[in-house]
Write a protein that binds this DNA or RNA. Structure first.
Lengths: 256, 256
DNA sequence: GATAGACAATTCATCATACAAAGGCAATTG
DNA sequence: CAATTGCCTTTGTATGATGAATTGTCTATC
């Protein structure tokens, strides 16, 4: 199936002799990227030549080349003149990049990323909470509190709860006013989305999480750095439980 | 000046009627990026049209477009169909990306990044040191020790000392076996390169740094997590002094 | 038979051109 | 004056040609 067919807007009447040219760049990039993640193009292997890729995805070389440039800039592939384009080892992938994480999707489980991210969160979030307690604006605190309210009101809606929790932590990182921490929001979001779904089904676990999140908001408002740090720690202990459950419920990585 | 002239390899004899076509993609991308960083194209402003960019940099639209795609994928610009390409606010830049940091270069001082990175290092490196003490292979410890030796033997050579120090910390992050920490190596490197030059001129300060780095290597070898963490903390206190000096010696950011 | 140099084949890199699509703007029209 | 419509501009896509460079082959020589 070509990418034009994927993008579901080929319903305009095909004018006689006129060629339809839908916008396909994003689709092609995603298609190649997900094919790489799905081992259609395995690590270390050469991608097909540009000409072959044109046929496979049904687009011109222009689109293929621009897609490859994007993938290369994110570390997924490396193009060598005259030789071809090879898929880079996963260590070189820009896993902190939002788009890359979207392309990886649920395969995040196979990359051992969840535990890495949890460890990183243990290092970062307590610090971020302290900074936020010190430097967050009232607007930022209010935004975080809105996210907390959404968590509280989510009731049984797991989707809404996850979304609110993600917003909470993203808001906290933003309120830390540290540019490095902020950049980590995307990977923490991805990790949360894929670990929360698996757990958080027990109502009492959710209640416990909501309560500790509330205490953190309060600490921010009181500008109490120590309390904020403590809340963050407790929060991560809960998250650790969730992730353990999520990982257990998934097929073992079976890494090489 | 066009980009062809910048790349200093236009010395082949110009065959009659034959057109020289040097590889210019990287140069053009860097040129546009550094122009953005240098406020030639200010934040929020529109870039010139693709046609104008072709003239300005003396390359074809193909090259311009592929460059813009790369910049867009790193968050520096956002292209809107049929409207133009605008320079994104700095918060959206992918400052953890190696290339972006190279483009920013010494302007890292103007972005308040050094203190951000120091705070991030305070959060991360002690953790990374603990993990490294636990999980580093003997080869990794040996590599870190080689970096330490290079620091010790650098004597007055500031360039060599900085390079060795960068290698030391990159090796430590790698030895933590945490993919998130590893991805932060590039920004820590950039921060080190630009802060070490400014300080480290006093020989006794260097000696103190060398000594604490030695103790960390020892802790790794003994698999002593607590000692590794402690060394990392002490190291960062020294780094904090260096950065304070570096920032003081530079023109005030004069942020908007 | 082994090695070195020349050569051809392959594939990426760049250029140039053409046209389609759609946002913005202004003239037109009610 | 407001809404519609059509033109202009600019980006998005397609295509063909050619330069450049790496890889492997082929041949000549020892």
């Amino acid at each position: 199936m070509t990418v034009q067919e994927q993008s579901g807007r080929s319903n305009a009447p095909e004018g006689e002799g006129s060629v339809r040219r839908p916008r396909v760049q994003k689709n092609v990039t995603r298609a190649i990227a997900t094919d790489i993640c799905a081992d259609v193009f395995p690590i270390g292997a050469f991608l097909p030549t540009e000409a072959e890729l044109c046929l496979r995805y049904g687009v011109s070389r222009t689109v293929i080349r621009e897609s490859l440039k994007i993938l290369e800039s994110k570390g997924l592939v490396r193009g060598r003149s005259r030789v071809g384009t090879v898929v880079c080892p996963k260590e070189e992938w820009n896993i902190l990049d939002q788009q890359v994480l979207e392309w990886i999707g649920p395969r995040i489980f196979e990359l051992d990323l969840l535990t890495c991210v949890l460890d990183a969160r243990r290092a970062i979030e307590p610090f971020a909470a302290e900074f936020a307690a010190e430097r967050a604006t009232v607007q930022e605190v209010a935004e975080i509190e809105r996210a907390w309210q959404a968590m509280r009101d989510a009731e049984g809606d797991l989707e809404a709860f996850t979304k609110a929790d993600v917003a909470f932590h993203a808001g906290l990182l933003k309120a830390s006013h540290n540019q490095v921490f902020m950049q980590l929001a995307s990977i923490i979001q991805a990790a949360l989305e894929f670990s929360l779904h698996a757990s958080n089904e027990a109502a009492d676990a959710r209640d416990e999480a909501v309560e500790i999140h509330r205490r953190l908001v309060e600490a921010l408002r009181m500008r109490d750095r120590a309390a904020a740090r403590e809340c963050s720690h407790r929060m991560l202990d809960i998250a650790a439980r969730d992730i353990a459950i999520a990982v257990r419920n998934h097929p073992a990585p079976a890494e090489r």
